[in-house]
Simulated scan of single mutants.
Amino acid sequence: MFKKTKWFLIVLLSLTLIGCSSGEDQSAEESTADTSEPSEGATSEEVATNGLSETPESKDSSKVIPDNTEDKMMVYEAHIELETEDYDQFYQSLQEKMNETEAYIVETNIHKTEQGNREGHIRLRVPQNHFETLLTGFEDISDTIQSRNVSGRDVTKEYVDLESRLEAKNKVESRLLTFLEQAEKTEDLIKISQDLERVQAEIETLKGQMNYLENQSDFSTITVSLTETKVVVPKVDSQELNTWEKTKQAFFSSVNGLVSFFSWLFIFIIGYSPVIVLFAAIALLGWLWIRSRKKRADEN
């Protein structure tokens, strides 16, 4: 009796497991059928995007960033404050270091102080594999390093995220292109074209952001703030000490002044001679009249 009951329970348990398995398979098929058919109000971009989130490729976008530093995308920046006795010599030495490390200048701002010294800053871009070489090279070409600040930023996760988004957008673009070829109605063509244009603009934006991160990681930035420390002695102008030249200049200036005065006097006399003669005649007649009266008064 006990054995019959045991076999009965085993058979009953087996039938129950088979029934549950069949129910799960049927529900899975129904859910798959429901997700495969887009809704009537869905846009062409939503239809093209549907199903991409469950692909094996999209699962790779959540991969863990490797711990190895060499596999990371790093952006390095450095700021150095230094003093140099001679700016011209420093700049020449800097050019030699830049040639050795394949660096280049992106900005220069140098000005003179009231004491005649030069100060300012120079911004450089250097390949990341030469970053440390150029950074330590400033100790050889400058007199004093006042300070040095180096910072690094890990942009690996940001780049991987952009790469994943770009991959998804490329798939959407591919599907929209397929829809565009299959569309027959004018309104469908217009709608798909608009969605395609928007997706392509987003793709270009993502590519631009990725190129920027690649450039920032491939080339590091070094900003150099420098001050010239040599004592500048004002030069004595040789012209200020040339007494003979000054004497000649004063002599010719006086001669030119006399010539100008007599020239003006000659022009005045000749040019205004009629008026001068008239006034002279009137003055002469007046003087003669006064003199004759005076004689008559004396005779009386």
Rank of each mutant, 00 (worst) to 15 (best):
V255G: 05
R293P: 05
M98H: 05
T221S: 07
N300E: 06
K59N: 08
I222M: 05
E100F: 08
F261Q: 13
K235R: 14
A280V: 08
S225M: 14
T221V: 11
Y272P: 03
P127I: 00
Y104K: 05
I267T: 03
V255H: 11
V232K: 01
N50M: 14
S53L: 13
F251W: 06
S27W: 10
A28W: 03
Y212L: 07
T113A: 12
G51R: 03
D88H: 04
S238T: 12
S27E: 08
F131C: 02
K230D: 12
T229Y: 02
I80V: 14
G51P: 02
I222A: 01
I203Y: 03
Q216D: 08
L9M: 07
D60V: 02
S217V: 05
S254C: 04
T133E: 15
G23E: 03
Q216V: 06
T186P: 03
L82C: 09
T108E: 12
N300A: 07
R291G: 01
V232F: 15
T101N: 15
I80D: 01
G208M: 02
E228S: 04
D298R: 15
A250R: 07
V199A: 01
D161K: 07
Q194T: 14
K246Q: 15
T229P: 02
T55R: 09
D140R: 10
R148Q: 15
H79S: 12
N50P: 06
E132H: 06
T49K: 15
D60I: 11
E228K: 05
F262A: 04
L13W: 09
S253N: 15
N117G: 00
K294G: 03
E30F: 01
F251P: 00
E37G: 04
L124Y: 03
W264D: 14
Q239Y: 10
Q209K: 15
T178F: 04
R123L: 10
L17N: 06
D298Y: 10
L265V: 00
K6R: 11
D218V: 04
